[in-house]
Design a protein around this nucleic acid. Structure first.
Lengths: 140, 140
DNA sequence: GGATTAGATTATAATCATTCTAAATTCGCA
DNA sequence: TGCGAATTTAGAATGATTATAATCTAATCC
């Protein structure tokens, strides 16, 4: 008897066979929208699923990316971070604390005349700087 | 007698002591604005400077980045690519041929209301898609 | 000029995120 | 229940980048 929950349904809707690791990883991603790394996902889920392998985390995330459930962020870190795709938004990275913050941005307003012959499938906006908490810290 | 050329002067202006590897790497970056990888730079310069070490290429590029002469691009490749900083522009990556193309975009026109408390030091725009040449190829 | 020193370069080893591989396990379905 | 395919697993392999330690360079000081 398999328990079909909302997460499993979401996987099925994206043509991904549900499995315990896949459901747990999707659940983690949705409930912790904090752009986690593979290591963070692995460490967190290891407690509830001790047999989990890091390779499975990689495999699952790549499966999700192919199914367009997820997108990888490469904000200059060594480790890739992952973002559950929702609406268009940009990513801000604090160079002091390393935190990543979403911000609303109307990406479609970006008109790139140079690219009118190009087929564009994804638009990413990355800002770098210092977040308010770190600005206060450095002012002291 | 040291030959001071425009490249050495540019280094000095950025508080970087000129040296043969540094001048050659800067020259390469300016004359080949094609977002090269470390390997491409290394292989190309090895012919004129056979003693060049790959570690020197890494060190030099990181020195340039700190001096804000250069910026690293992380368009989801394993290898980092590098871009001589000029004016604001976005980067398009063709997911078919892997080529990277600059495009003009007025990034400063972008207002991110969510970030008005943030200090923003860099803005990057990355688009993904298919370039015209590859569109034609796949249509055949 | 010759010694000193700091910084730059080199070669190699180490690191570490990610992928590969092959074996074990699980799941769906008859 | 049992077969076959897909999934998961553990560990090895890969490969870009960084760290280390030795060597070299070039300017400075006496």
């Amino acid at each position: 008897m398999v328990v079909i929950d909302a997460f499993a349904e979401k996987l099925i809707a994206h043509n991904i066979t549900p499995s315990q690791p896949r459901v747990l990883i999707l659940k983690y991603l949705i409930e912790n929208q904090c752009h986690p790394t593979v290591d963070q996902i692995y460490s967190a889920l290891r407690q509830t699923l001790p047999t989990l392998s890091k390779a499975t985390v990689y495999n699952t995330l790549n499966t999700f990316i192919e199914a367009k459930l997820l997108r990888p962020l490469s904000i200059e870190d060594k480790e890739t971070r992952y973002d559950i795709v929702t609406e268009n938004h940009g990513h801000f990275k604090c160079s002091s604390c390393g935190g990543i913050v979403n911000f609303a941005v109307d990406i479609d307003r970006f008109v790139a005349e140079d690219l009118h012959e190009f087929r564009i499938t994804a638009k990413n906006v990355y800002f770098d700087g210092i977040c308010p908490a770190c600005i206060i810290k450095t002012e002291k």
